[in-house]
């Protein structure tokens, strides 16, 4: 069988992850509401948690290891938030696809054969850069380069590398012993039980 063909379980796993993350993001709003006042005195600092939004872009490729998994999942997550009534309208789709693309690049560069920490870190960082570049060009074009744009992108990239990149890697590692990844290449790396 053709290893790059998407099985139904691959498609469904990406799609269900996108749905699960729209629940996670919704719940995060309640946690964030309690934490955000501490960061609001300097808006670029809000980018500290930017990485959370990009976990699907890294987690899905790490699990299913198929070309396009990051774009599909992140784009779908964006569509989902639009269907749920996102305040950002159509642009979340553009941005979602762009973030997915950013996350996808490092995996594509490794020909979908490398899924280690370095690739995950790069995927997280690139997804973060792609997302914030969009923000900076379209939402904050008049903001000052050094006072706002640069720190904003840099903080978000660092946050995405750590939260989305290493965080996804950590999630996959924690999921291995639960057996839910047994049908995926990632699961084959686990000791047989």
């Amino acid at each position: 069988m053709n290893p790059s063909r998407w099985r139904t379980v691959d498609i469904l796993t990406c799609a269900v992850l996108a749905v699960a993350f729209s629940v996670v993001f919704w719940a995060w709003n309640f946690v964030w509401a309690a934490l955000s006042p501490a960061l609001s005195f300097y808006p670029p600092l809000a980018a500290v948690v930017y990485g959370l939004w990009l976990i699907p872009a890294v987690l899905a490729p790490l699990i299913v290891r198929k070309a396009g998994a990051g774009i599909f999942t992140e784009g779908l997550a964006a569509l989902m938030s639009l269907l749920l009534g996102s305040p950002y309208g159509m642009t979340v789709i553009y941005q979602g696809l762009l973030q997915g693309l950013g996350g996808e690049l490092p995996f594509a560069a490794g020909r979908y054969r490398r899924f280690g920490n370095a690739t995950a870190l790069a995927a997280g960082a690139l997804a973060g850069v792609a997302g914030t570049l969009w923000d900076v060009f379209y939402w904050y074009p008049d903001a000052d380069l050094w006072a706002f744009k640069v720190p904003y992108v840099a903080i978000a990239a660092a946050s995405s590398a750590i939260v989305a990149g290493l965080g996804s890697k950590g999630l996959v590692k924690a999921m291995l012993p639960t057996g839910v990844l047994d049908r995926f290449p990632a699961g084959r790396e686990r000791q047989r039980i």
Partner: peptide, 12 residues
Amino acid sequence: LVGAIRRAGRLA
């Protein structure tokens, strides 16, 4: 997420 992936497998 663990529950979600399990569900995805069953639905597939």
